[in-house]
Write a protein that binds this DNA or RNA. Structure first.
Lengths: 358, 358
DNA sequence: CTGAAAGCGCTAACAT
DNA sequence: ATGTTAGCGCTTTCAG
């Protein structure tokens, strides 16, 4: 294994020109006479010369590499964003180094260090750093764009969907279907998206004159595990006063809920409506297909990358929130609230009715 | 945004020592007196010094970065391998740059170039390069390990499961259940794994004295799409002489087949057995849970990375195939061939019986 | 249009 | 134990 050897000097020597000329040709920095250009090209081919990027980077103080910090790759949501980022990077002639953090603050820090060590020119953060100071320090010195999650949008831009409006849309759909007993399966992580979706759920209920019942709010695992969604739904469905609809802040929770309902012999959507969030691929792999909010993951990734390149190359310094369009996708897991009523239902509707009229 | 500035020189000046001493302390290359060490540490803290990796890399001619070349990240199979690689890299103090190729030869080449350009020390290939010459050139000069797919295992090691044995195991399971009409849903890609699984299917049939019927072999899309699996199954199931079992070389094909069977009112596993391959997470998200071959994806990734580090740090040059254990996971999608028979079945069994006895 | 030469920030002899 | 110095391979003034 004889590692890369031929340098610009070798080419210059062989072609009978100076290294400067070779450099100029390779980089297109300034014009080179046709004759020498040809000779240099030829020797580059002959010798199999490839410029050493480390040397170039050191000299130019730029790497053309970006850093991607993300919680994990196995979550399809992140995987699709990643795909968008790598595609945009490829097109822009950048490479991407990946740091998966599992939301561990120590790893988040270690990832961010790449910026200080000069290994990358900028970063895309899909992980809302636990240690905010780390974020503030880094974002004030280096080009950073936040994707999906964010710490602060004033100091570095963030690209995501309008989680509040999306959640309101879904709740409007559920409410419009006549549901009044709508439960929420949220998460015990501290993502801004989680907080916003939860808030929108509450606001929607309140605006509709419905009570926010703490019994109707369950918290799944921080990584949105399918099993924790199932457990939450089981609790909800086996309670004294089960909901007729469940608003899940993640598709995986919706999945778990569907399984739970099946186990309990509850039919969907006839007896129970369930909605998801994100629209990852497996929402349409089995019936009932899940009603959900579609996020443009790939575009989220692409846009984040493009904004970072903008910052890098044009020294743009715009900050703030950039919303990409979401979409309410109505499929098979939600339907009109059943019209034949149990005694319990009747009682509650009377209660709610009076509230709505207040 | 004032990019990283403070250099080793600044630290040396401030601490009143030479750059060499600072370097020695930072790298632990040789011993430094407690007193000066303390003073240097202090100024490093004060100035917020971080060694510039580009300069270090240039000087040491090593980057401590590895390259990951993979077809795409959104496929959970690759995503899990990736997770294993990044974890091992983190532990070894390496970074990983990612190149997704979508199996495009041009991109495969561009990814490999990183080796020649000195941006990375070695590479893990999860994409069996279309242009074999590119592989041979690169593998003869740089440390490379192949994961899952491979071009040649003599020139660079490969880590994967024993696809032949795994497929034989699955076929033995199906055959043991009494199935004689076993179809195959393979893929039209040119992966070695595909070829090997297909061969094992044929060998198993032949050894059992069963014919290899070309009508029973369908080719799904190269990227194992769910929909193409469904289409293949539909063809198989609606034919004159439908199979009683389908051996799918991918879980997604098995998925599509289950959907197809449901659409046709065929019950699983009573009327039809279906087996998958890989054991990606969604094999147990819906009933029937899929009988499949579990691949240790995460371990595949970890092991590949470790082998690469071995090559990098200990200059080991072992090649050859490294098999990790697979597992036949019997779940709900396969069962004994039904015992009540149609006329057609009876006819065929007689035929097969005579063959088996030959 | 081309060449000479000065570094980019760091490590590793080679001295002391 | 510490300092001096020579590059790593490249880009980029500055001259010509």
């Amino acid at each position: 294994m004889n590692r890369s050897k031929v340098t610009i000097k070798d080419v210059a020597l062989e072609a009978g020109v100076s290294v400067a000329t070779v450099s100029r040709l390779v980089n297109g920095t300034s014009i080179v006479s046709a004759a020498t250009a040809a000779k240099i090209q030829e020797t580059i081919q002959k010798l199999g010369y490839e410029p050493n990027l480390m040397a170039r980077n050191l000299r130019k103080k730029e790497t053309r590499v970006i850093l991607i910090v993300c919680p994990n790759v196995t979550n399809p949501y992140y995987a699709h964003i990643l795909a968008g980022i790598t595609e945009a990077s490829y097109q822009q002639g950048f490479s991407a180094v990946m740091y998966t953090t599992n939301c561990d603050p120590e790893r988040e820090l270690e990832g961010i260090q790449m910026l200080y060590k000069g290994r990358v020119d900028g970063a895309i953060l899909m992980d809302g750093l636990r240690d905010h100071q780390v974020f503030y320090n880094a974002a004030s010195r280096f080009p950073i764009v936040q994707c999906s999650e964010y710490v602060d949008t004033e100091i570095a831009p963030a690209v995501c969907i309008d989680n509040y409006q999306a959640s309101r849309d879904m709740m409007a759909h559920l409410l419009g279907l006549g549901h009044t007993k709508i439960a929420l399966i949220s998460s015990n992580n501290d993502y801004v998206s989680t907080k916003i979706r939860t808030q929108a759920y509450k606001d929607s209920l309140l605006e509709a004159g419905l009570p926010v019942d703490p019994e109707y709010i369950k918290l799944g695992s921080s990584d949105y595990s399918f099993q924790s969604g199932r457990a939450c739904a089981l609790e909800l469905l086996q309670s004294e006063n089960p909901p007729s609809a469940i608003f899940c802040i993640s598709d995986t929770f919706a999945f778990g809920s569907i399984i739970a309902a099946k186990e309990l012999g509850i039919t969907i959507p006839e007896e129970l409506s369930i909605s998801g969030f994100d629209d990852v691929e497996y929402t349409t792999m089995h019936h009932p297909f899940i009603t959900t909010i579609a996020q443009p993951c790939y575009e989220l990734g692409r846009t984040s990358a493009q904004m970072l390149f903008e910052r890098l190359e044009k020294h743009s310094a715009e900050t703030g929130l950039v919303y990409l369009d979401h979409q309410l996708v109505v499929r098979e897991s939600t339907a009109k609230k059943k019209t034949y009523l149990t005694h319990q239902d009747t009682d509650l509707m009377v209660n709610n009715y009076s509230k709505e009229k207040k």
